[in-house]
C-alpha cells in the first residue's frame, strides 16, 4: 500500500487518538480526526478521513430505541426502528412519500417566494425612508407578536381547508423574519459608502443596486434562513389542521388509523427534508456572502 503524505498524516492522527482511548484528555486535532474509523491498519486514506462519529451516534440511538421498543412491547405507542424502516420503504415504494413531500415542498417554495416579494421591497422602503418606517413600524410591531399559528382558526373560516391556508400561514411567518432582517441590513449600510457614491455622481437606482443591496445581502440571507425554519415548523401545524394532503396531514392521518410505523416514517421525512434544506441554504449563504459567518456578521 502506497501511503500518500496526507493519508499517512491522517493515519498518524488516528493512531494518536486511539492511543488516548477512553481517557479524559481532549485535544484539538481529535475533533477533526476520524476516531470512529477504527483499525489504523490497511484503511485507505479517504476512508480514514471520514468522520464516523455521527453514524456511531445514530447507531447507538437506534439500538437504544430498539431495546426500549422491545421492552415496552407496545407497538402502537413505540414501534421498533425495523418496523419504521419497513413502513418507510413501503410508503416510498407506493409513492406516497413523494406525493405528500412534493405537496408540502411546493407550498413551502410558493410561500417563501411570496414572502420575499412582499417583505424585501418593504424592508428596503422602511430601512431607507424614516417617514415610511415611522408609519408602518407600529403596525408591524402590533401584528408580529400574534403567531402564525394563532391565525389558523380565522384563516380556516376565510379560506377553508386546502392549499391557501398553509400558504397564508407560512407567508405570514416568513414575512416578519425577512422584513426585520432586511430593514436592519439596509440600515447597517455604511453611510460613508452611500455618500462616496453620491459624490461621484452615481444615480440613485445605481446606488441602490450597487451599494445598498450588496451591503444588505448578508442580513437578508440570514432572514431567509430564519424564514425557512419558521415556515417549515408552521407547515406541519397548518397541514395537520387545515389541509387535505401534505406531510403534516399524513402524520395525523396515520395517527388516527393507529398506524404508528407510518407516523414515525413521515416524521423522519420531515426531519430529512428540513435538514437537507438547511444544509442547502447554508451552502447558498457561503456562496452568496462568503465574507460573513453563519449569523451574518462579517469576520
Amino acid at each position: 500500500m502506497s501511503a500518500t503524505p496526507s493519508a499517512s498524516a491522517a493515519l498518524k492522527m488516528d493512531q494518536a487518538t486511539t492511543d488516548v482511548g477512553g481517557g479524559a484528555a481532549q485535544t484539538g486535532d481529535r475533533a477533526r480526526s476520524g476516531r470512529g474509523a477504527a483499525s489504523p491498519g490497511g484503511v485507505p486514506g479517504w476512508l480514514a478521513r471520514i468522520d464516523f462519529t455521527p453514524l456511531r451516534s445514530f447507531a447507538i440511538l437506534l439500538l437504544v430505541w430498539q431495546g426500549v421498543a422491545v421492552w415496552t412491547a407496545s407497538p402502537i405507542q413505540l414501534p421498533t426502528p425495523l418496523r419504521v424502516g419497513a413502513a418507510f420503504l413501503d410508503l416510498a415504494a407506493e409513492g406516497e412519500i413523494t406525493e405528500h413531500a412534493l405537496v408540502s415542498v411546493t407550498r413551502l417554495v410558493v410561500s417563501l417566494a411570496i414572502a420575499v416579494v412582499l417583505a424585501v421591497p418593504l424592508g428596503f422602503l422602511m430601512g431607507l425612508n424614516r417617514k415610511i418606517d415611522a408609519f408602518v413600524d407600529p403596525l408591524i410591531e402590533l401584528l408580529r407578536p400574534i403567531s402564525g399559528i394563532a391565525w389558523i382558526p380565522l384563516a380556516l373560516f376565510i379560506f377553508g381547508i386546502g392549499d391557501v391556508l398553509p400558504v397564508f400561514i407560512m407567508v405570514y411567518v416568513a414575512f416578519f423574519a425577512l422584513l426585520l432582517n432586511t430593514i436592519s441590513g439596509v440600515r447597517s449600510v455604511d453611510p460613508k459608502l452611500i455618500a462616496a457614491a453620491r459624490t461621484m455622481g452615481v444615480a440613485r437606482p445605481m446606488i441602490l443596486a450597487k451599494v445598498v443591496a450588496p451591503a444588505a445581502l448578508p442580513a437578508i440571507v440570514v432572514g431567509f434562513r430564519l424564514a425557512f425554519a419558521g415556515a417549515w415548523a408552521a407547515i406541519v401545524a397548518a397541514e395537520l389542521i387545515g389541509a387535505p394532503n401534505g406531510l403534516g396531514f399524513a402524520i395525523e392521518w396515520y395517527r388516527e388509523l393507529l398506524m404508528s410505523p407510518k407516523v414515525f416514517a413521515f416524521i423522519l421525512v420531515i426531519a430529512v427534508i428540513g435538514y437537507v434544506c438547511d444544509l442547502g441554504l447554508r451552502a447558498l449563504q457561503r456562496r452568496l456572502t462568503p465574507w460573513v459567518d453563519e449569523a451574518g456578521h462579517s469576520s
Binding site: 402502537i76 405507542q77 417549515w232 415548523a233 408552521a234 407547515i235 406541519v236 401545524a237 395537520l240 406531510l247 403534516g248 402524520i251 395525523e252 396515520y254 395517527r255 393507529l258 404508528s260 407516523v263 414515525f264 416524521i267 420531515i270 426531519a271 427534508i273 428540513g274 435538514y275 438547511d278
Partner: peptide, 13 residues
C-alpha cells in the same frame, strides 16, 4: 428540524 407539531401525534399516542 422536526417541528414541535410533528411530535404532537406521537404525544397524543
Amino acid at each position: 428540524p422536526i417541528a414541535p407539531m410533528a411530535i404532537l401525534p406521537i404525544a397524543i399516542l
